[in-house]
Every structure is written in C-alpha cells, then in structure tokens.
C-alpha cells in the first residue's frame, strides 16, 4: 500500500513537469508525456504481476480451462497496450492515429477470440435439433 502514495506523487509531479517541458519545447512535451505514461505503467507492473498470479491461481481451482485463462490474459494485455498507445496518440493531438490504433487492437481481439466463437457456434448447432 505504501508504494501507492509514492506512485500518486510521481504522477502529479510528472503532470506538472510535462506542462513545463511542453511550454519550453512543444515536441519534447509530447515525448515527455509518453515517457511519463510508460514509466508510471512500469511502476505498476510489479503489483499487476501479483494480481495476475492470484487470478491465475483462482482460475486453476475453478472450472475455467487453461486455454481460456490464457486467452483472457492475452486480451487483457492487448487492450492495455493498445489503450496506452491510443491515449499517447491523443495526447500528442493525433486523434486519427489514435482511432487507427484502437481499430488495430480490436482486430487483434477479434482474431484472438475466433476459436472460442467457433466452439460456441458448434455447441449451439449440436443443441438445436
């Protein structure tokens, strides 16, 4: 819990610092805010790892098969990173690029979930006479 206050302080400090860098040098400000986002997420990685391990443990006890859990984790990772990239593009003022990045993320998600969808359709086909 103690790391969280430090994390908040760093985030606020970085926000103010980003404003000063942006006023001093416009392009540098965008690079700096991107770097702030990455650094803050890296700070979170360790806690996120603990949460992911706990969820993995719970899933192993429950009836969720190993493949589906891996799929869920993949979906989580893809959405997290594509959301990060899309927001970075928006901060730099490039709304169009952000939408393309999000579309790319969605396409990856659809590709990933295709096998599950096929299983579901087969199941439905078997159920209906």
């Amino acid at each position: 819990m103690d790391g969280f206050w430090r994390f908040l302080g760093i985030a606020l400090g970085a926000a103010v610092l980003a404003m000063t860098v942006r006023s001093a040098h416009r392009e540098m400000g965008a690079a700096f805010s991107l770097c702030c986002g990455a650094a803050l997420m890296l700070l979170l990685m360790e806690r996120l790892g603990q949460a992911a391990a706990a969820i993995d443990e719970m899933a192993r006890l429950s009836a969720v098969s190993e493949g589906h859990m891996a799929l869920i984790f993949k979906v989580l990772g893809i959405t997290m990173l594509s959301e990060f990239a899309a927001q970075a593009c928006r901060d730099a003022g490039e709304e169009g690029i952000a939408l393309r990045v999000e579309m790319g993320g969605k396409v990856m998600l659809v590709l990933l979930s295709l096998p599950v969808l096929q299983q579901i359709t087969q199941l439905i086909m078997e159920l209906t006479p």
């Binding site: 760093i10 970085a14 610092l17 000063t20 001093a24 040098h25 540098m28 770097c35 990455a38 650094a39």
Partner: peptide, 17 residues
C-alpha cells in the same frame, strides 16, 4: 524509471534554453 523521467525533462528544458 524516475531518473529517466527527470533526464528527459532536463534535456527538454535545456534544449529550449
């Protein structure tokens, strides 16, 4: 990671000056 953050801020302001 914080060192790199401050490094980038320093470089940015320095280049502007």
């Amino acid at each position: 990671q914080i060192q790199e953050l401050l490094q980038i801020a320093g470089i940015g302001v320095l280049v502007a000056v």
